[in-house]
């Protein structure tokens, strides 16, 4: 009888340890994904001064928008590298606002033929497209990692070992701005 108890105890301990390892791995994956986001966001931040410098020459009536973008960039830059869930959530919100602001800027630029055809602006727009694609990719990697971590922590016996693995408050998801969401329709391009 006592042999069976021992076997059950050993299996339980091994099971908990395996679960603990899985949580630690997933936690590290989230950290890796978060740093991936920061890399892409800093590329976005590096692009902004150039875009603003070109836009200022043509968009005299859009100074408020340009000032907003510059402010949001500063806010976003200050929060790069933060690991506290609350600070991360604030960073994501600020970056989403920045993304929307940049989107608006390029939309406004469409109404200014000279700005739209400016060689530097064309190049900046192409780079922006690439950077935004990479930001979206980093966001998807991060969200997938957060989902995996949440699953491991919230499914029994995850709750028992999450604290031991150093996972307290769950990291937030990085939701895409509403303006960037939409259904994919392959048929449109086939």
């Amino acid at each position: 009888m006592s042999g069976i108890v021992w076997i059950i105890a050993v299996v339980a301990v091994v099971g908990l340890y395996v679960w603990y390892v899985a949580i630690v791995k997933r936690k590290n994956r989230v950290a890796e994904a978060l740093s991936g986001i920061d890399v892409q966001l800093s590329q976005r931040h590096e692009l902004i001064p150039n875009v603003l410098a070109i836009a200022k020459r043509y968009l005299a009536h859009e100074q408020t928008l340009l000032a907003d973008i510059a402010r949001l960039r500063t806010t976003g830059q200050e929060r790069l590298g933060s690991s506290d869930p609350k600070a991360i959530a604030e960073k994501f919100a600020a970056e989403n606002q920045l993304g929307v602001g940049l989107g608006r800027l390029f939309a406004v630029a469409e109404g200014y033929p000279e700005l739209k055809s400016d060689a530097l602006m064309v190049k900046a727009q192409a780079t922006y497209q690439e950077v935004e694609t990479n930001v979206a990719a980093a966001r998807r990697f991060y969200n997938a990692s957060v989902t995996a971590l949440r699953n491991a922590c919230q499914i029994f016996p995850g709750q028992l070992v999450a604290g031991l693995a150093g996972v307290g408050q769950m990291p937030p998801f990085f939701e895409a701005p509403v303006e960037h969401r939409g259904a994919v329709n392959a048929a449109d391009h086939l």
Binding site: V39, T133, N134, A136, A137, A138, V184, A186, A187, L190
Partner: peptide, 23 residues
């Protein structure tokens, strides 16, 4: 590179990739 893989394999790319196979 997990990010670069996803930068190529956007939802639209995946949709079109499958449409190519289904064509």
């Amino acid at each position: 590179d997990q990010v670069s893989a996803r930068a190529l394999l956007t939802p639209a790319f995946m949709e079109r990739f499958m449409a190519l196979a289904a064509s």
